[in-house]
Write a protein that binds this DNA or RNA. Structure first.
Lengths: 259, 259
DNA sequence: GAGGGCGAGCTGGTCGGACCAGCAGACCAG
DNA sequence: CTGGTCTGCTGGTCCGACCAGCTCGCCCTC
């Protein structure tokens, strides 16, 4: 690759800006547990004294932390900025930007969801069989299922559906899977939002979806991880295939059946 | 769940802060393509005039954009802040924070990697078979493999290994898979960094890894997607199992074989 | 004693001005 | 074409100021 002397690269010189150090100190305090979600930071003027920097510097640090979703400072709240619990919102933002900047197609997002939810179903099944997942988690899934059955209208159905997928992801016991599932799911919803309205035959789609979900629950309950995984994937493929260009459907179908 | 009257939620009242509007305007300019990566923003003083806000406000906006990885302002660069191409760094940061804040265990990260790389291998295989993936991508994988063989020392080997996994992810044709693979891989490396040094029998591990990778390439080449997926997962499981508590290994092994 | 109204005190948001160190690019000598 | 110098403007940081408004404690009413 035309590079020279890459054996001994020099580390880039980079003086650290004051506000970055403030950010790191506060981040560290949160990570180490010295500051827990719900607690509040001192006021900007107080912080300015503690760190011995100007208020501008403190504010820039707070803006960074706020943009990272670690802190929220309500305007004119005398109690100071509050430490936020971790939320997948940040991850959601990352994925959304990835989707809007790069040519991240719907097909890629769906592949990703199939992968996530297939694995989640598999893991949930095996954890349940091994007694690591609680019966409560299965009950949650079934409760979400009931909500879907009872749902009236597309919006309510969509909400219940999201809850169902979330419940399965939660049962996987893997919080990364869970967070990503939710994030990507909402991104997909944002993309097909407009197309969804035009979808004719909503009742038929709901019917099919319910059928898939019932099969999924059955597979999970009976400990058939592989089957559960395949059903989860096939369900997604079935549900969204119509929004895809013909050329991309084939690979998705293969992915749904395979592995 | 115990929610009441969720049908008609009120939109949260929230006056928009000036710097947030500046952020959005600039973001929009980037998303719409009016500003492309590599171009430069006007100087802070210029921006302050254009938006008719104070420099503090402009700076806070720039700090947010910078923290989001959309812009970088080099200290005292008279040319102004530069628009950055999208990079997975932001996603990597999200995942890293997810790993440090929540009790994201190594087991969860590994499950996630097995899922990602298993799917990537499957997709790459089928894309290759369908003529959608280029032979170049396969060649890239093999080149990375050669680098691993030629690598001397743990560090160089690790770097080549990372490149290998990246190449497979790239061949999957799914940029989300690719980005996540890289992000989670580096997070895992960060976690086991210290433990890695103590690993005895480095030569044996390298040997086994090379063997797995050879099998993987063979499976990809011969169009056996399911096999490729299983090998990829098993390889990870084999490589990292020793760092896991006994109780968590079983599920991982099941996941490696199953689906 | 309990509840509601009210003011004080401080907060965050924004502004304007100021200083410094240092980079890019122009300019100049070789 | 090279290497050095100069300089204008930049970003980083600081200071001081003003405003609108949220909290909280005080006080008054019932």
């Amino acid at each position: 690759m035309g590079e020279r002397g890459q054996g001994a690269r020099f580390a880039p010189i980079e003086r650290r800006r004051a506000y970055e150090q403030v950010v790191e100190r506060i981040e560290q305090a949160v990570f180490s547990g010295a500051l827990t979600p719900g607690e509040r930071l001192p006021s900007e003027r107080e912080l300015m004294g503690q760190f011995a920097v100007s208020r501008s510097t403190v504010r820039e640090a707070l803006r960074v932390l706020e943009s990272n979703g670690m802190v929220r400072s309500s305007p004119r709240d005398p109690r100071g900025p509050v430490i936020l619990p971790f939320s997948p919102a940040h991850l959601h933002k990352s994925v959304t930007r990835l989707a809007s900047v790069t040519e991240l197609s719907l097909a890629e997002l769906l592949q990703f969801r199939m992968m996530l939810e297939g694995s989640a179903s598999f893991l949930a099944t095996n954890r349940l069989a091994a007694g690591q997942a609680t019966a409560e988690q299965l009950a949650e899934i079934e409760a979400a299922m009931d909500d879907m059955r009872a749902a009236e209208g597309r919006i309510e159905f969509g909400r219940a559906d999201l809850a169902f997928h979330d419940a399965v992801a939660r049962a996987s016991g893997n919080s990364l899977v869970q967070v990503c599932t939710h994030a990507v799911h909402t991104v997909v919803l944002g993309i097909i939002e407009d197309k969804l309205d035009k979808a004719e035959d909503y009742a038929r789609i709901a019917e099919r979806t319910l059928g898939h979900h019932e099969q999924l629950i059955e597979a999970i309950r009976s400990g058939q991880g592989g089957v559960a995984s395949r059903i989860a994937r096939a369900s997604l493929c079935d549900y969204y295939a119509e929004y895809l260009p013909e050329a991309e459907r084939e690979l998705l179908r293969t992915f749904a059946q395979g592995s």
